[in-house]
Design a protein around this nucleic acid. Structure first.
Length: 477
DNA sequence: ATTTTTTTCCT
DNA sequence: GGAAAAAAA
């Protein structure tokens, strides 16, 4: 009978957890979570992590297992536990972020030198990110990447929940855990996160409830509906995925089995799974280009003449740009910790190409405020919008915030949900309040510049300026 | 995962 | 002269 420490990281779940499964097959399991103070984490993701750890501890407690919570350098913590009690090995699911991989390699070497069995298992990708072209080059374009992945690999079946046995009391007595509340993961400004529980139910069971609700209600119109932020046509699984409360393998498998019963949804399902493919592609890119979070993949973007106007950045962050679709998105993010994908693209394009603020400032803001923050998705997607990424939008693809709003929120339902001060404006003007005549504004009780800002920049001018800058960048190279 | 301008095609 | 398609950015 062996005793294995199972080190939980961004895989806060009990099902389809390969390390936990394997360790439980062989004997007793000591579940451990380490808060690493050197790891930078956004305020929103810490809020979620608090709830998530609480839920995981509850699920384990029901199986008469503790969740050990320790704060500090992971190697030191592991050494400390190993020195205290008789442990045979340590097991974890692999991480694929550059810092995490380096840390895991060092820890594995150290613990193995101490004679421990250290085993790592596949982490939360459909296929581990080190695949490449036949000539060893990494994929830089999504479609060939995804086709090749689909053709060459099959997704491993999701594992059921491990059969966990209670720990022997004498073992439990020797283990000390810190209290979750002592970590103070919840934000210092409590009113900021106060509305999160209206929108989210963190935890493994919440993840599966969400997935099944989506498969039943959202998938039917996924391909078209996913672009309309007022429609319930997207899965909203991203925060669960980011914290590993559900694995991509589980989403894959449960979607496939739903499709088996609903063959008419095949095309919608394929589209949904392809979005999981974009997550996969982002992790592939981050693995092969570890500087993705702070260095443009296309070198000509290194000298981009950013203006980085602090006031404009602040207006964007707080949803005060004067462009309703941008402001609605930024307020959705601030209030709910999440933003619809279509609106993320519009807001990001606006920051970069209308406000001339460095995409890394936007990336940092998203990191701090997104409940679903994911290092690979966030950096790959910002580079995609900036045009500096691998398979990026061409630089001249500049979103028009009014057209996008009219096209994807025609009745202004999304705008009215997040911008109550504009609710009384007629549909025709809600996408561009500055075009409304004085009597219409008066009727809607809006004084522009007082109740709602005038546009901070002129889109047509900003667009032209952005295109000119891009022409100059091209000339230099 | 686009927008704008130009051209074509019809009335 | 307006809509649709194609081209350019």
């Amino acid at each position: 009978m062996t005793v294995t420490i199972v080190w939980f990281r961004r895989d806060l779940r009990l099902t389809d957890h390969p390390a936990l499964w394997e360790a439980a097959q062989e004997g007793a399991v000591i579940p451990l979570y380490i808060l690493d103070p050197h790891e930078s984490s956004g305020a929103a993701e810490l809020w979620w992590r608090h709830q998530s750890l609480h839920k995981l501890a509850e699920s384990l407690a029901a199986l008469r297992l503790p969740l050990l919570l320790r704060r500090g350098d992971p190697l030191q913590i592991l050494q400390e536990i190993i020195d205290t009690i008789a442990v045979d090995g340590v097991a974890w699911n692999r991480r694929y972020d550059p810092r995490g991989m380096a840390q895991d390699t060092a820890i594995k070497a150290d613990l193995q030198a101490r004679g421990l069995s250290v085993r790592s298992f596949p982490g939360d990708c459909l296929v581990e990110p080190w695949l490449h072209h036949h000539d060893q080059q990494p994929y830089k374009v999504f479609t060939p990447f995804w086709k090749s992945l689909m053709a060459r690999f099959s997704v491993a079946p999701a594992l059921p929940q491990a059969d966990l046995q209670p720990l022997a009391p004498e073992l439990t007595q020797q283990l000390s855990s810190e209290s979750l509340s002592s970590w103070q993961l919840l934000p210092q400004q409590p009113d900021w996160a106060s509305r999160f529980p209206e929108f989210w139910e963190p935890g493994e069971s919440g993840a599966h409830i969400r997935l099944h609700a989506f498969l039943e209600e959202g998938l039917l119109n996924y391909s078209k509906g996913r672009d309309f932020p007022a429609q319930p046509s997207v899965s909203r699984l991203s925060p669960y995925l980011a914290h590993g409360e559900i694995s991509p393998r589980q989403i894959w498998q449960e979607t496939q089995s739903h499709l088996a019963n609903h063959p008419e949804l095949a095309a919608q399902g394929e589209h949904f799974l392809r979005e999981l493919g974009w997550r996969e592609f982002s992790w592939h890119l981050l693995f092969h280009f570890p500087n993705l979070p702070d260095t443009p993949l296309r070198p000509e973007f290194a000298d981009f003449p950013w203006q980085n106007n602090e006031k404009l950045l602040y207006a964007w962050q707080r949803g005060q740009t004067g462009y309703p679709i941008v402001d609605a998105g930024m307020r959705e993010l601030w209030q709910s910790g999440w933003m619809h994908n279509r609106v993320r693209m519009i807001c990001a394009s606006f920051l970069i190409k209308d406000l001339f603020v460095d995409w890394r400032k936007g990336e940092a803001w998203f990191q701090d405020t997104l409940l679903d923050f994911d290092e690979a998705n966030n950096s790959a997607s910002w580079q995609w919008v900036a045009g500096s990424g691998a398979d990026a939008a061409p630089y001249f693809r500049i979103f028009n915030p009014v057209l996008q709003s009219e096209k994807f929120d025609p009745q202004g339902d999304y705008l009215r949900r997040w911008l109550p001060e504009l609710a009384a404006l007629p549909d025709r003007y809600i996408h561009q309040p500055w075009m409304a005549e004085a009597n219409i504004l008066a009727q809607a009780k809006i004084s522009l510049g007082v109740d709602y800002p005038l546009p901070t920049v002129d889109h047509a001018q900003a667009r032209q300026k952005a295109l000119d800058v891009f022409q100059n960048l091209k000339k230099k190279t």
